[in-house]
Design a protein around this nucleic acid. Structure first.
Lengths: 207, 207
DNA sequence: TTCGTCATGTAATGGGTTACATGATTAC
DNA sequence: GTAATCATGTAACCCATTACATGACGAA
């Protein structure tokens, strides 16, 4: 998580730790911020591993401004962190961070990740449905119920957002592939923006 | 977080670890699940602290079914975990878990927590606005932009959900206090059965 | 010269997960 | 008698936070 963020930011330009944190704070601060207590150790761990290196090895008598830049090894590690990764808790938690670096990926890879994410969210929705139907037996707590319902609404909103991202990627690939209209694949209609499925409960499901 | 969940579940009835996890999984599994590697150590930590105790100290030659129940000290610790707690990351992260135990709180306390949460989310929205206005300078990454926008929509949705919860609590307190309609505040409606806490005893709160 | 912010770092702690090990019970 | 699931536990690790310490630098 942290390492992905560091590598991604250093990919744009070399920076020192303090600056990294500020960049992170006002680019992705809405989702996430790191403390220095995690940042500096992570930087040196990456350095020892050869993923980043000091930019100015010149002598700072005091320890000011350790500027780091990403190495070739770091670049490939970055791509791994961005695309691989078992599912587990963190891997799905860090999806927003991944998306923030999507511009570094090929459209096909983006599509794959978006659909993996969507299927994860659909599983989560199923979990919610089970929770609700099973709540009908037994004494029902209204707060828990409201909680689950709201969580499911949020998840549905997430899914429809993913759908717009997915169809945007499909369009960029030249394949509109709308689910209900197997018309001629050529000719993307000129006035057809917002073309794809927008809101909740899309019918089709791969898997 | 885990301790709050354990105490809250044991408040309903005595259980052993395995059962605790299953309860958690299908009541709040939509949000959260624990691994046994965290659960069992937490249980014994709570036992050493005196917050829970074995229900059947009878001799199990093997180690089967360590049934625990909550103690008086555990009850008061539960209320602390539920209501106190600095803001920080976890404290705001565990809001759903708190809400799941709202029925154990007085309406005034619920209101206080809901409004604390709302103000936190509003701060987060501000953070998002800053992020957006400041993204207008500099090269704008469309993915990051979409990310922040969607995050803000979600947060707004959360806030309006909180608003319904808040006004439900206000109604239960006899104070409708709508911001635009200062109608007569008296008269708690006699057929108002929902929005009242359901079952599960003990509403009192010390401290 | 003092205060704010830049800048780097460490130690202790928190709050979990993964993987593994062990064995008892139940269902077939 | 064997497989699934019940049931408890440990060891190693992961990824971060909080609190603290240190000191340089610029501006008022």
């Amino acid at each position: 998580m942290l390492e992905l963020a560091i590598l991604g930011l250093l990919k744009e330009r070399a920076m020192h730790g303090y600056e990294l944190r500020k960049q992170l704070a006002h680019k992705l601060g809405f989702f996430w911020t790191v403390s220095y207590g995690a940042l500096y150790p992570a930087l040196r761990k990456l350095e020892k591993r050869g993923a980043v290196e000091k930019f100015f090895p010149g002598e700072q008598t005091t320890r000011r401004k350790q500027v780091y830049r990403i190495t070739a090894a770091g670049e490939s590690e970055f791509l791994e962190l961005l695309t691989e990764g078992a599912h587990s808790t963190w891997e799905e938690e860090k999806f927003p961070l991944r998306l923030a670096f999507f511009r570094y990926l090929k459209p096909e890879t983006r599509l794959r990740l978006l659909e993996r994410r969507k299927s994860y969210l659909e599983d989560k929705l199923d979990e919610g449905r089970r929770s609700l139907t099973q709540a009908k037996r037994g004494p029902t707590d209204s707060y828990t119920l409201s909680l689950v319902r709201h969580g499911m609404e949020t998840t549905e909103h997430d899914i429809s957002w993913l759908d717009t991202l997915i169809s945007a990627e499909r369009a960029a690939l030249g394949e509109p592939a709308p689910p209900a209209a197997p018309s001629s694949p050529a000719e993307p209609a000129p006035d057809d923006d917002r073309a794809a499925k927008l809101q909740t409960s899309s019918e089709l499901q791969s898997k």
